[in-house]
């Protein structure tokens, strides 16, 4: 554990909780992509199956349980409790285009051919692109609520901070896991456009709207 990873995890946690609280408080999930949330639920489920097979630390286990519960809680709010507020007309990204290639890639480029390892790798590849339906939705509607922008910024920052963590770990522990590092870089690059808009608009008190 180092400061970059801790900040990354806290940023990740903040993003997930921010989304959950926003939906709960406003009683609405307008502007949120249900498809991205489905993908994140698949990501957490396939990655954190190791809750039952390997123990790293209390910290890791608690975070995994929180991520899983919050993710399924978000799905419950979006597709059940506040379903009428779900803007499915604008949430039109085809997620099979992400699910299938990520699955194929996880069989091609993987550290070891065991069920848990392939599932872990799949979760890494899928996470890298899971935000695409949400970004697509923002581009279709041309705007995002400020709180949604904060959510996206925290979620994007998490992997960027993990990149710093991997650089640090490379020099201090000789840690080098190219699968997660390259996927993490791809994931962060996808947010770059959004980061630019966030810094130039949202931080100056303006609403995020596309020209």
């Amino acid at each position: 554990m180092n400061i970059f990873r801790l900040c990354g995890d806290l940023s990740h946690l903040l993003a997930i909780l921010l989304l959950l609280v926003k939906i709960w408080k406003t009683r609405s999930c307008a502007g949120i992509s249900g498809k991205s949330q489905i993908l994140f639920a698949i990501v957490y489920t396939t990655r954190y199956l190791d809750l039952f097979t390997s123990f790293v630390s209390i910290y890791n286990s608690v975070m995994k349980i929180v991520f899983l519960s919050a993710s399924y809680g978000t799905l419950y709010l979006m597709f059940y409790k506040f379903k009428p507020t779900y803007d499915h007309n604008h949430d039109s990204f085809r997620i099979l285009y992400l699910i299938v290639p990520a699955l194929v890639l996880s069989f091609v480029i993987v550290h070891a051919y065991t069920l848990m390892e392939v599932l872990w790798t799949y979760s890494i590849y899928l996470e890298a692109v899971a935000i695409m339906p949400q970004l697509f939705m923002v581009s279709r509607t041309g705007e995002a609520e400020t709180i949604t922008s904060h959510y996206l910024f925290a979620l994007g920052s998490y992997r960027a901070l993990y990149i710093l963590n991997w650089i640090y770990r490379y020099y201090t522990e000789d840690f080098l896991d190219l699968i997660v590092i390259i996927a993490g870089i791809v994931q962060t690059i996808l947010y770059c456009d959004f980061f630019y808009l966030y810094i130039t608009k949202v931080l100056k008190g303006k609403r995020l709207s596309l020209p």
Partner: peptide
């Protein structure tokens, strides 16, 4: 053998 490959991150 540890099938989880020692993934210690989240």
């Amino acid at each position: 053998q540890d099938s989880s490959f020692g993934h210690d991150e989240l």
